Computed example of a mutant assay.
Amino acid sequence: MDLDATDRRILTVLQKQGRVTNAELSERVNLSPSACHRRVQRLEEEGFIDGFVALLNARKLKRPTTVFVEITLSGQADEVLEAFERAVKLVPDILECHLMAGSADYLLKVVAEDTEDFARIHRQFLARLPGVAQMHSSFALRTVRQTTAIPV
């Protein structure tokens, strides 16, 4: 399915205001409410919309510390990669895990209360991840830009 200009406007609005009512969305993209609803349903069915979430405030939830962890594995065999990825999925403090091309095999985004809490996460989880040969952690000092909106 190809996206037309109206689909793109719908996706742009929904990325920034996921709780917008169908009536308000239809008005903003210049469609009837029923046509707008059908388009949103189609965008969901076609996989352009993965789901709707609430973006939480990490500071309010006492998780203001973001740490990026570069992981180098001991090997590239499928079993090593699969074991690592299975284990990462079980760590609640890891928000993102990316298989990388470059100097590290994986890049993790971890949230913590502070450096002590990160030390706990490191001891309990990160140091026990299978296949890890090397780990390098970098603490974010300040978030300059953060968005979940993909240009459409």
Rank of each mutant, 00 (worst) to 15 (best):
G18H: 00
R19V: 08
A23E: 12
E24M: 15
R28E: 15
R28V: 10
V29I: 08
P33S: 13
S34H: 15
S34P: 07
C36P: 07
H37W: 09
H37K: 14
R38V: 07
R39A: 02
Q41Y: 11
E45R: 14
E46K: 06
E46T: 13
G47V: 14
D50I: 01
D50T: 02
G51P: 00
G51L: 10
V53Y: 15
L55V: 09
L55Q: 06
L56Q: 10
N57H: 05
N57M: 02
A58H: 13
R59Q: 14
K60Y: 11
K62D: 14
R63D: 04
P64T: 11
V67T: 01
V69G: 06
I71K: 01
L73E: 05
A77L: 05
D78R: 10
D78H: 08
E79F: 08
E82S: 06
E85I: 00
A87H: 02
V88K: 12
K89I: 00
P92W: 07
D93M: 02
I94L: 08
L95T: 09
C97H: 02
C97W: 01
L99P: 11
L99D: 06
M100D: 00
A104C: 11
A104V: 00
L108Y: 10
V110L: 05
V110A: 06
V110D: 04
V111A: 10
V111D: 10
A112M: 10
A112F: 09
D114T: 11
A119D: 13
R120W: 00
R123E: 09
F125Y: 15
